[in-house]
């Protein structure tokens, strides 16, 4: 089932076409990485999903209900973590969660148990300070707790890690991975390593459209480069190997890099077999054999070019 589905959604700000016929679906139970550079329209899209901004055309459906601008009933399925969540600084975390729980219609007993559970999950249990004294990372963690309070079917996080230090980032990512058990996550970011760490599917937004969308592992294998990096023991004469390798029929080029060789082949699977055979036959003192993996970063750069 699709928790979220966008069809031909467009949004203009003045003469600027921010979102231009955007369509995609998010299946239940996955972490969807919504990637794009700053200003690509990620926040705009999320605000439209939440009914905080009107779309100019197209439809957005959350759990098979259409989103309406202004007050929208679909928000009861959604937990939202804004990029910089703003709280009532004079409250304590528990007071804030109680307010959220009362608004969203949980019973007092539910509020108590959910707050305890979530404050535990985000590591804020026992913090008795007012929210105004929190660090950014703590606010972000409280933001996740409030977003998960009503057990939403869809958790929308707008660049939750962008403003954080490495420790804070790592904490948020592990909380989000843990949240995957309970809910579907739409996670916007421009930090590609975060996507690689926790996302199942990824969509790359550029010029108001998704330029690439799919399973992260799939995308990577589809864009796999036909390269193998070989590392040999240091005493070995690499130039000699480079020469013999470049004469092989399935090898298109061999590059010498420090103590390793980068072998480019015309066909990956077949090439791999033949290269391995070749290596065993020659009994070369091999230390490392690595098939080239495309990084999301290189894909991203290629796409937004």
């Amino acid at each position: 089932m699709n928790v979220l589905s966008l069809r031909n959604v467009s949004k203009r700000f003045g003469s600027l076409n921010v979102i231009d016929g955007l369509s995609f679906d998010v299946e239940e139970g996955i972490v969807f990485g919504f990637v794009g550079k700053n200003g690509a329209g990620k926040t705009t899209t999320m605000k439209m999903i939440l009914g905080l901004l009107a779309c100019d055309s197209g439809t957005i459906r959350v759990c098979d209900e259409e989103v309406a601008f202004g007050e929208t009933a679909t928000n009861r399925h959604i937990g939202y973590l804004p990029d910089v969540p703003e709280f009532y600084g004079y409250m304590k975390a528990k007071e804030y969660l109680t307010l959220c729980g009362e608004i969203t219609g949980l019973s007092n007993a539910q509020i108590r148990s959910r707050s305890d559970e979530l404050l535990n999950l985000v590591g804020l249990s026992g913090v008795e300070r007012k929210i105004s004294t929190y660090s950014r990372g703590m606010k972000q963690r409280l933001g996740i707790a409030q977003a998960l309070l009503n057990s939403p079917k869809l958790l929308i996080c707008d660049e939750p890690t962008s403003a954080l230090d490495p420790i804070g980032r790592s904490e948020i990512l592990s909380i989000l991975s843990a949240a995957k058990k309970y809910t579907t996550v739409l996670f916007s970011t421009h930090i590609l390593s975060d996507v690689e760490r926790i996302c199942d599917r990824v969509g790359i937004l550029n010029d108001g459209r998704l330029m690439l969308e799919g399973d992260l592992a799939d995308i990577k294998s589809r864009h796999r480069e036909n390269t193998v990096t070989l590392e040999f023991e240091s005493t070995f004469d690499l130039q000699e190997v480079q020469r013999t390798f470049s004469e092989l029929p399935f090898v298109s080029s061999v590059e010498l890099q420090n103590r390793s060789l980068l072998v480019r082949m015309s066909d990956t699977i077949d090439g791999n077999h033949r290269l391995l055979e070749h290596l065993t036959r020659l009994k070369l003192p091999l230390l490392k054999y690595e098939v080239g993996e495309p990084t999301l970063e290189s894909l991203f750069m290629e796409i937004i070019k």
């Binding site: 007050e71 928000n75 939202y80 910089v84 703003e86 959220c100 409030q146 309070l149």
Partner: peptide, 15 residues
């Protein structure tokens, strides 16, 4: 201006 209502409204608080 601060955006404190966003959390409330997305929690279902009627405007």
């Amino acid at each position: 201006t601060k955006g404190t209502l966003i959390n409330m409204v997305t929690k279902g608080l009627s405007r």
